[in-house]
Write a protein that binds this DNA or RNA. Structure first.
Lengths: 340, 340
DNA sequence: CCCACGCTTTGCAACGATGCAGAGATGATG
DNA sequence: CATCATCTCTGCATCGTTGCAAAGCGTGGG
């Protein structure tokens, strides 16, 4: 009942512990006669290997940790799903933790008393910890970073091309004839790299189209949540000359913005077109459905996991910069066409 | 670099391994002089305890697993967030896995080669595994079940009162004067207990109001996903006499249903009122915003975690049935009033 | 002056598994 | 028939930590 060990099984089958281990692992040949006897004992005692002990001996835990800011943000939930799936194909399981974007929590995670040592590696989607700090603290555990923040070449890193993604979104709006295009989600301070890259892409698209950027139309938000998108949209509507399109830095901001527009009786896309980033499922069924730039989350997850495992087994020590593909999904919020 | 051990630190400080251990753990008193010396060595070598070894010795891992069908289903993501938070207050971390509602995967999880032995306990939200099977397989690991499925008294179990929740939702619609109320999401087969309980509550409400149930208006769905809600709604609209309200067994079904209604030009709530269950964030910002019966997820998580820890430390061996509270959040999809 | 007591410190064993090297049995070969 | 290679099987050491019991040491009381 309380969990039988190799010893118990060995005693019962009248063989050595080592032989039982060989039967369990199947790596070393065992004679048919003994194998049958041992197998019977294994079944009778319902033996289950103690993985903690196995891990100690083997020096590997078969676990990686995925740390995201917030698990209830759909993008991270969907990404987590893909990471768990990708890890499983390599025989790994995933421990999940969330930092709430709290730098303290992120720091704690890498501190001395953390459980990080229990994992073979760490996938980290950092929000507020700085590059230096991260470098100082992660000299033990293999780390791969997800998303933009911190990538000055000292860490393995997987992300989409955020500048191109933002440019694609903005150019889509330009292609629809919109000329007064707002942007929601800039973060013009040290830890807002992702947002800043998207701002760059937004500016590039406008400039290439020969338009000047109206700084009033760039509304910063401290995070990427629905209610902040709603508030930002209110500010845009209050302008003397409101926009005819909005590029939101993620889908949640876009959904918040559309919420405000619906309440204000502004038609989407007729009066204002809306596009987001992330390609979350929620956007397929919103009213109107949301045009979005969707990162290939499965690709991000696969790349991140295999990179991390490469670091773990020492075959890929030099930091890599991997770019995952993204594509524009056109839906009602920009074209009005009820596509799915 | 490769991780120093107690041995390394002991050698450096010129004391025994045991003393270093005592300093690290702080449980046994150590003289000031030695403590300082050992601490210095700890710092110099940047010692981090090997948690795998510690776990082996202590027989506890400080980890629990949370297994849900799909992490990208918002309800589970939001619940997972709460579970992680609740576990953290007890010093536990959470490993997350998903089964995709696949019975095979659920079985595998409890099978001989599973990693379940690595965890002190298991929070399981089962979809398709049967009670018998579960009982046969979990004689090793402490388990607490989340949600309805399987609760014949042999397992610890935390859920809301699904009958009451469904009744509340239906009565809300009745209170608005609706009389032809449909239900989307029944699952009239062995593993659909949750759905069946909601059907029971739905029937109760109608019967108490003196109405007869029109079986045509109960549309089953194999899962609780947006597209199935959309399809179900199409079937209801095709009826000679469509409903004037719909009770959906979860918010995703409701959002799918509203998607169909929007495309068909049916007004919500004027023509058809819609109510869901789960209280996911998505429903606050949908257009129209979604009336829903919201389980207290934080309460579910807290109760589940503390129950599980009780089982683990042996203080709560007898299976308990815990009911978490729920409440109706009234929004536009039933009243038209733009409440947040 | 000796003994007992309390406090700190230590060595040994153990948690349950696997790597390694060698023991024993078996069969093939000269 | 002796020798050697081959194939199973086994015992021992080890992964890094903590529980346990006892050793060492200093102090105070009889």
């Amino acid at each position: 009942m309380a969990g039988s060990t190799l010893r118990d099984v060995a005693r019962r089958a009248g063989v050595s512990i080592r032989t039982v281990s060989n039967v369990v692992n199947g790596s070393v040949p065992v004679s048919d006669e003994l194998r049958v006897r041992v197998q019977a004992a294994l079944d009778e005692l319902d033996y289950r290997p103690n993985l903690v002990a196995r891990n100690l001996r083997r020096g590997r835990s078969g676990m990686i940790a995925l740390v995201v800011p917030e698990l209830d943000v759909p993008y991270f939930a969907e990404l987590a799903r893909e990471v768990i799936t990708a890890a499983r194909t390599h025989g790994y399981v995933v421990m999940l933790d969330q930092t709430d974007g709290d730098g303290e929590r992120e720091r704690e995670l890498l501190g001395r008393e953390s459980r990080a040592t229990m994992f073979d590696g760490l996938l980290l989607s950092p929000l507020s910890i700085s590059a230096d700090e991260l470098r100082r603290r992660t000299n033990r555990v293999p780390v791969v970073l997800l998303g933009e923040h911190i990538f000055n070449g000292s860490f393995h890193h997987v992300a989409i091309d955020n500048v191109a993604a933002a440019r694609d979104a903005t150019e889509h709006l330009l292609g629809l004839g919109r000329r007064r295009i707002a942007a929601i989600g800039d973060q013009p301070y040290s830890t807002g790299e992702t947002a800043q890259l998207r701002t760059t892409g937004y500016r590039q698209a406008l400039e290439r189209a020969g338009l000047t950027v109206d700084e009033q139309l760039i509304v910063p938000t401290p995070r990427f949540h629905r209610h902040l998108g709603a508030e930002a949209m209110e500010r845009l509507l209050a302008l003397p000359e409101p926009p005819d399109a909005v590029f939101c830095y993620n889908d949640l901001l876009a959904i918040g913005a559309m919420h405000t527009l619906a309440r204000a009786g502004v038609r989407v896309p007729d009066d204002i077109a809306v596009v987001g980033v992330d390609g979350i499922q929620e956007g397929r069924y919103s009213s109107p459905s949301l045009t979005t730039v969707a990162p290939d989350k499965a690709a991000i997850a696969r790349t991140a996991v295999s990179t991390l495992l490469g670091v773990i087994d020492g075959s890929a020590p030099a930091p890599t910069e991997a770019k995952a593909p993204h594509r524009l999904l056109v839906r009602q919020s920009t074209t009005g066409a009820p596509v799915d």
